[in-house]
Write a protein that binds this DNA or RNA. Structure first.
Length: 494
RNA sequence: GCGCAGGUAGCUCAGCGGUAGAGCAGUUGGCUUUUAACCAAUUGGUCGAGGGUUCGAUCCCCUCCCUGCGUACCA
């Protein structure tokens, strides 16, 4: 409202010297008649984009944050940067005059936003640069930037003050730019194949579509509890009933569970349904999509993960066709007699294999733990695990020939579940039984409105979910889900 | 929830019973094609919080907070 009024001075005892000095410089700018927190500034290029498509002797107007400076008496070099990258600028006293140069030297800091007008040139050392004719301070930074060389390494600062991480760490910037492009490409991929994007409720009366603890909230106008969705599934299926044949939703789910390197309570999921398709057709769709992303953004189907020093730690080969294998065959590859044992023998064998087994585990859980530890965790190249036992996936269609298994796949890449796919259950009678069975265990309510919709008839359909965060991790080589989520959940700090 | 590691200057880190150090950033001076610019000088710390042991605690012990990793939970 009143940019030319200096803000009131903070009490001295609580303000560090660094901040005090910057406040003084701010006052200096204001006294010189400069709008220290300025307004519109028309630019011709972004700094990083200009450098990437460089031409000499171009008249340009560029704005950005000063990221480093090299002062040499009557001339100064500094780097101007934003999300696009950085570009060197050259400012000399003879170009802008004594007064403007003194103002820059004395009152403009690393961290400040400035706009520059001038022309492009290449320095003696070969650096693409802007020769400044006019410099305009655009916004004063009252706090210093992180270390110019190391950037932010403290994980807590990195996540709580993500902007500092993004200003100072190239790698973080790259990951989030890539993520954004990939998400856009996923939407295009689906739309080009006839899928329509829809939006269904995130606030639900009955949280369904997955077995997870929901976050609860309260809706005052209706005087009733509400839940953040754990999955959009039951609403998307209502749309299949409505006659939509190809739909997807790409948005957030919320699960009230633990945090880990692979889990964030709010995470992004692509869910898609395709009427008259089955889980195999969905697998083809997913395989095509992930390869499309790798080819466009990762330079090919070989994905290399690297450590801090840049050494390759693992290579994921996405070459098609992807391996498809039955759940039971995979377990037989661990122990050919696995399914010949009694449940007690299986428990003993699992422990022998070094897998921790809880005292109260059901037989299928013992098998599932062996699967997770000895197959999934070691599987880096894509593997479609299909025909899983029905206990693991109670909402999918049972196999026509063997009712102990269901028609689903679970896609494993990078040692993680990336995507499940189903031939969807569309029999309302069986669906009710399954939900009641589940509700009995979990003391959950049944979504009667959903059953009502199914009773009106839902076409046979294939469905998928893709954990977008984990997919981005796999494709960018991020080791933690926090490195692909801009603002991951952290405990509040008082 | 449990286990392990960590929290020291604005940032990156060293010190680990004798009262706090470096590099960068900052400040002052010099330098008109530098780029982790350079040269010289210099400011800056309730050593995460609270309690205890000790003549003396950043350092040892206890409790708590925050972070990371692992584990548990997790269709």
């Amino acid at each position: 409202m009143q940019p030319n009024t200096p803000p009131p001075a903070a009490p001295e005892h609580s303000e560090s010297e660094l901040l005090a000095i910057r406040r003084e410089k701010l006052d200096g700018l204001v006294k010189a008649g400069v709008d220290a927190f300025g307004g519109r500034y028309d630019t011709t290029h972004q700094p990083g984009a200009l450098k990437a498509n460089f031409e000499e002797n171009l008249t340009v107007s560029v704005a950005g944050r000063i990221l480093s400076r090299r002062e040499m008496g009557k001339a100064t070099f500094f780097d101007l940067g934003d999300i696009s990258g950085r570009m060197q600028c050259y400012l000399s006293k003879s170009d802008v005059g004594d007064e403007a140069y003194a103002q820059f030297s004395g009152l403009v800091d690393i961290g400040d936003f400035v706009g520059v007008e001038g022309f492009t040139f290449i320095t003696k050392r070969g650096e693409k640069s802007i020769h400044i004719k006019k410099l305009t301070p655009l916004s004063k930074a009252l706090r210093p930037l992180p270390d110019k060389w190391h950037g932010v390494t403290d994980k807590e600062i990195k996540y709580r003050q993500r902007y500092l991480d993004l200003i100072s760490n190239d790698r973080s910037r790259e990951i989030f730019v890539t993520r954004s492009k990939m998400v856009a490409a996923i939407r295009n991929y689906m739309q080009e194949r006839g899928f329509m994007e829809v939006e269904t409720p995130m606030m639900q009366d009955v949280p369904g579509g997955a077995a997870a603890k929901p976050f609860e909230t309260f809706f005052h106008a209706l005087n009733q509890p509400m839940f953040l969705r754990i999955a959009p599934e039951l609403y998307l299926k209502r749309l299949l009933v409505a006659g939509f044949t190809q739909i997807f939703e790409l948005n957030r789910n919320f699960r009230n569970e633990g945090l880990s390197r692979r889990h964030n309570p709010e995470f992004t999921m692509l869910e898609a349904y395709w009427a008259y398709a089955d889980f195999e057709k969905m697998a083809d769709l997913v395989e095509g999509m992930i390869c499309h992303l790798a080819e466009n953004f990762c330079g090919g189907l070989k994905i290399e993960h690297k450590d801090e020093e840049g050494n390759v730690t693992k290579t994921i080969n996405l070459a098609r066709p992807w391996k498809r294998a039955r759940y039971t065959d995979l377990l037989k590859s661990i122990d050919p007699k696995w399914y010949d044992y009694s449940p007690e023998e299986r428990k003993a064998r699992a422990k022998e294999l070094g897998v921790e087994i809880g005292a109260n585990f059901e037989d299928y859980e013992v098998t599932q733990h062996v699967f997770e530890r000895l197959i999934e965790a070691k599987q880096f190249d894509p593997l479609y695990v299909n025909h899983c036992p029905k206990e693991l996936v109670p909402l999918a269609k049972q196999n026509a020939e063997d009712n102990s298994i269901v028609d689903v796949y679970e896609l494993v890449i990078n040692g993680q579940e990336i995507s499940p796919g189903y031939s969807e259950l569309n029999n309302p009678i069986v669906q009710r039984e399954r939900l009641e069975h589940q509700a009995g265990e979990e003391t959950q309510k049944i979504d009667e409105e959903f059953i009502l919709a199914l009773e009106h008839g839902m076409p046979p359909a294939g469905g998928i979910g893709i954990g977008i965060d984990r997919l981005i991790m796999m494709l960018t080589g991020a080791e933690s889900i926090r490195d692909v989520i801009l603002f991951p959940q952290l405990k509040r700090k008082d």
